[in-house]
Nucleic acid binder design. Structure first.
Length: 575
DNA sequence: GCCGTTTTCGGCCCGACTGTTTTCAGTCG
């Protein structure tokens, strides 16, 4: 899909225009167009072919022409012109905290700096002091910015951010009296990766809360220490911001600091049209505050339903809230079991019984134990004989246990030609069969796509595990025509997985939306190799919520009997 | 560059903090 390619060009164009001090609204238009392209669940080429580009809000004549030019020629003339004298390395400097476009442009003009090395040099030899308005503190901040930039260029995983935020909140509560405290920002929206962590609190002694915060043991460095805002950096390079607000403004502040930015801009536009004003203190009519204690106030005043944070990305949730057609999102409590777990039979840490007992303790009705298949030697994949042994043991334990059912399954390798790694006669005996690719990631797009499509045609295969194979921060998705995979999943009645393992979260939110549109069922599995990893289900639920999924879209909200009935239905359908 | 139940021109979301500028520019969220 060309969506992301074009989006990244628009982002670069925005950066260059910013360096050239162009009209900020024009810059914003490019940023907005890039975001729209990134979020679009449809292939931009399809939309271009039906001449409907300009029907997308935010895409006008100029951006539509550039999209068409790129689709036809593979380049955008305007972009080629803009980048003439501006290198990618120079653009990258915009990512340095406390160093903005004005300063970078000035440094480029005065000292011909083009990259990080040049910048460091100009700071080190003191030339930077010759610039107007460049005092001691400012240079100090830039130096710290460079340090921070090199330390933590990467965004952290959602799981890391969750754990850091929870630990911080726990420590803070222990050290000082706090009335309310909650994480906001992209963490509250459940984004798959998080830049920094925003926390919001109320309490009687605001200043003292900030003082306690900046002196927490995990604070390695203090970036800001004011009356209502504190900002610290941990040893791992994670930035945490704490804001203390009045309890009558907590809802407005929570809304404001949860974002996303584009969601908030849309809200303020709507408010303005009704002669209202929204800021982090509340919602105002003329000078009078008419709401802000609860987050809901902001939305109801604008005649909208309250929008769950996971949807606040300006992907249609505002329209849905106005029309009262928001989805009733999946909840943690809807999940009746985990559909992807490994035991000691392959590379997991626990026996069938240990896993089952833990699942029961978590309130599940069932748990699918899906060990690797024979080809995957590195993960001690089971031979057919071992798998038969596992089936027998599963049956024995199921007779013994009450209130929890083990679904004996496998995560069977999809071989390079699309064949499965066990015979159909054996697969037929299993409660649940997940197919996965663990080799040949570098195959050509057509071949990889065909490989998965072929596997989905097998009547005994129920779910495709981690369909795109991406590992956050480590590995790009394999080159796959995901639209075709989704299409075929719908046709064959195969479910696609949200793999909830911390660095997978695969399918992602956008692909979940596409799958839902095609009526494809989603299975959420943790891929846990240890019972201490079963908690990751909440990460999978978060992804599902961001993908607008409801309980009825998700396979493991079904009670055990219905789930089994569903697995058998594919056989009937495919014969 | 986008957009229109005030507008095809003239707007475009809102505020805090910081540093160094004695009145505001730059950066950030």
């Amino acid at each position: 899909m060309k969506n992301r390619e074009i989006a990244s060009i628009f982002e670069k164009m925005a950066d260059i225009l910013e360096l050239k001090d162009d009209n900020p609204f024009k810059i914003n238009a490019y940023i907005k167009a890039a975001r729209i392209l990134n979020d679009l669940p449809t292939d931009i080429e399809e939309i271009a072919q039906s001449c409907e580009l300009q029907k997308i809000p935010g895409i006008g004549k100029g951006t539509a022409e550039k999209i068409i030019e790129y689709l036809e020629t593979g380049r955008i003339t305007k972009f080629e012109q803009l980048r003439q004298d501006i290198s990618n390395e120079l653009i990258a400097l915009l990512g340095i905290p406390s160093l903005g476009p004005k300063t970078v442009a000035l440094l480029h003009k005065e000292f011909k700096i083009n990259n990080l090395e040049d910048l460091k040099q100009v700071v080190a030899d003191g030339r930077i002091t010759h610039l107007p308005g460049m005092g001691e503190k400012k240079i100090e901040n830039i130096m710290r910015g460079i340090e921070l930039y090199t330390l933590s260029k990467e965004r952290m995983l959602l799981s890391e951010a969750l754990n850091t935020a929870r630990e911080t909140i726990k420590q803070l509560k222990k050290s000082i009296d706090i009335t309310t405290i909650e994480a906001a920002g992209s963490l509250r929206r459940g984004k798959e990766t998080i830049g920094d962590i925003d926390i919001l609190a109320t309490g009687k002694k605001g200043k003292e809360i900030i003082d306690a915060f900046v002196h927490l043991p995990l604070a390695n460095d203090i970036l800001a220490h004011g009356n209502t805002k504190g900002s610290i950096v941990t040893a791992a390079g994670t930035q945490l911001d704490l804001r203390v607000v009045d309890k009558d403004s907590f809802g407005a502040a929570l809304q404001y600091f949860t974002g996303s930015k584009s969601h908030n801009i849309r809200l303020r536009e709507i408010a303005k049209r009704e002669h209202l004003k929204i800021n982090e203190y509340g919602i105002f009519s003329a000078k009078k505050k008419i709401g802000g204690k609860r987050e809901k106030d902001i939305y109801t005043t604008l005649h909208m339903d309250w929008i769950p944070p996971e949807l606040r990305e300006d992907r249609g949730e505002i329209e849905a809230a106005l029309n009262h057609t928001l989805p009733s999102l999946l909840n943690d409590s809807d999940i009746k079991g985990d559909l992807h777990v490994h035991s000691t039979y392959s590379d997991g840490a626990h026996s069938l019984e240990e896993i089952a007992l833990k699942a029961k303790e978590m309130g599940y009705q069932y748990i699918a134990i899906t060990d690797h298949s024979q080809s995957l030697k590195i993960a001690r994949g089971l031979s057919e004989a071992q798998l038969r042994e596992k089936i027998a043991e599963g049956k024995r334990i199921n007779k013994k246990l009450f209130g929890i059912k083990i679904l004996i399954g496998t995560e069977v390798d999809i071989k390079s030609d699309g064949a499965l790694d066990y015979s159909d006669t054996l697969l037929k005996q299993l409660d649940l069969v997940i197919g996965a690719i663990h080799s040949g990631f570098k195959q050509k797009r057509e071949q990889l796509t065909k490989r998965i499509v072929t596997a989905m045609k097998n009547p005994y295969l129920h779910i495709i595990a981690h369909p795109t194979g991406r590992l956050l921060g480590e590995r790009e998705p394999y080159d796959l025509d995901i639209n075709q995979v989704i299409e075929m999943a719908g046709k064959t009645g195969t479910a696609l997985e949200i793999n909830a393992y911390t660095e997978r979260l695969d399918l992602d939110d956008i692909n979940c939306m596409k799958a839902k549109q095609k009526g494809v069922k989603i299975a959420i599995g943790t891929d846990a190799h240890h019972v201490d990893q079963l908690w990751m289900m909440e990460l999978g639920v978060t992804v599902a919520r961001r993908g607008w999924l409801e309980a009825r879209d998700v396979l493991n909200t079904l009670p055990a009997e219905e789930l089994i009935k569903w697995t058998k239905s594919k056989r009937v359908r495919m014969h």
